[in-house]
Simulated scan of single mutants.
Amino acid sequence: MPIDAASALAAAPRTDEIAWEPGDVQLYHLALGAGRPATDPGELRYVLESRLRVLPSFATVAGAGAPGVIRTLSLPGVDTDLARVLHAGQRLALHRPVPPRGTARTTTRVTAAYDKGTAALLVTRTDAADADGTLWTEEAEVYVRGEGNWGGERGPSARSAPPADGPDAVVDRPTREDQALLYRLTGDLNPLHADPEFAARAGFDRPVLHGLCTYGITLKAVVDTLLDGDPARVRGYGARFTGVVYPGETLRVRMWRAGGGVVRVTGEAVERGVRVLTGTVTGTDTVTRSAARSG
């Protein structure tokens, strides 16, 4: 069935109760590649419960709830073949640091539906709040091929070029061949990331790494390289997915300090020379000035 944009926009928000524990956070970090080397103090902060810090992008999987794409497809007015769906972008605003253990109520609704001609672009917003108030707000952009041409608003263009000057830091993050199989244990069971037959039906040579896994790996690289390894310094993070990473490829993350605590980032699949992510991390104003290039 085609997407009913009017029904999706008019639908009442969906509310869910979620809960998470330190083990969920540790699994998420391990699924991003944390813990290597296993004795590195900087890595142990992501995987050892006695010193656990939470990477803010954990919010995208907290409570093992459905991630942006799957959550969007469960909303009223959205009924389409999962093989035609791509995660186009993700934005996250942190109101407080994410605790290693917690409960929250999430409220999700479709906030925009754009007609791209050959596709629809849906934007969903999820607010998570606990007893002390709002914890985070996230927005997911979901691209649905073959669902355009209903005469709706085309929406803004989000294309942006990376800075013309050289990056302030470059790091390479190799991914594992089984990385998508591990990451899906955080709650994203989209068969695109595990089933070769489904991936072929979706137009890919083989299963691809979750966009939100690439998203988390990139944020961790910024935190470790430019934010003194302190995830609590992140205030916001937005990214667009411009390509895919295949498990086993190397993700090259380039970072530019843009002033005011803003870091511009790009991600590239090194083996194919394909840019897969562009984004912006907003942190504190005291970004470390001594990061060295590597990779």
Rank of each mutant, 00 (worst) to 15 (best):
V262Y: 07
V262I: 13
V253S: 05
T282G: 10
G152S: 07
R36M: 13
L277Y: 07
G236R: 08
L30N: 09
P22V: 07
V98S: 02
D165C: 07
T106V: 12
T250K: 01
T111P: 05
A10P: 08
G295R: 08
C213N: 11
G166M: 06
G166Q: 14
P2R: 15
T284L: 12
P247G: 05
L30I: 14
R36P: 00
T137Y: 01
R252C: 10
D228L: 13
S290K: 12
S50Y: 03
T137W: 09
A169G: 03
P2H: 13
T107C: 08
R91Q: 14
R45P: 12
L94F: 04
P100G: 11
A202N: 01
R53V: 14
R101L: 13
N149H: 14
R105G: 02
A113L: 00
T282V: 15
G295Q: 04
A258V: 03
R14Y: 02
D81N: 09
G146L: 10
G77N: 09
H87F: 03
V245C: 13
V144T: 08
I3L: 15
A59P: 04
G133Y: 11
G42I: 08
L52E: 10
E21A: 14
A6K: 15
E153R: 14
E153G: 02
L52H: 09
V287C: 04
A113N: 05
R96P: 07
P67M: 07
Y28I: 06
H29G: 05
A38K: 06
S57Y: 04
A10C: 08
A8M: 10
P76Q: 10
G42Y: 02
G166W: 00
T288A: 15
A112M: 01
E197L: 04
R201I: 04
G243F: 05
T118E: 14
P100R: 13
P162H: 07
S50D: 15
A128R: 01
E21Q: 15
S157Q: 13
D205C: 03
L32N: 12
N190Q: 01
T103M: 07
P191H: 00
R176Y: 05
P196I: 06
L73H: 06
G89S: 07
V170Q: 09
A180H: 01
T80E: 08
A31H: 10
T124W: 01
D205M: 02
R252T: 14
G155F: 05
G187Q: 04
V69Y: 00
E177A: 15
T288D: 15
T111K: 05
G243M: 03
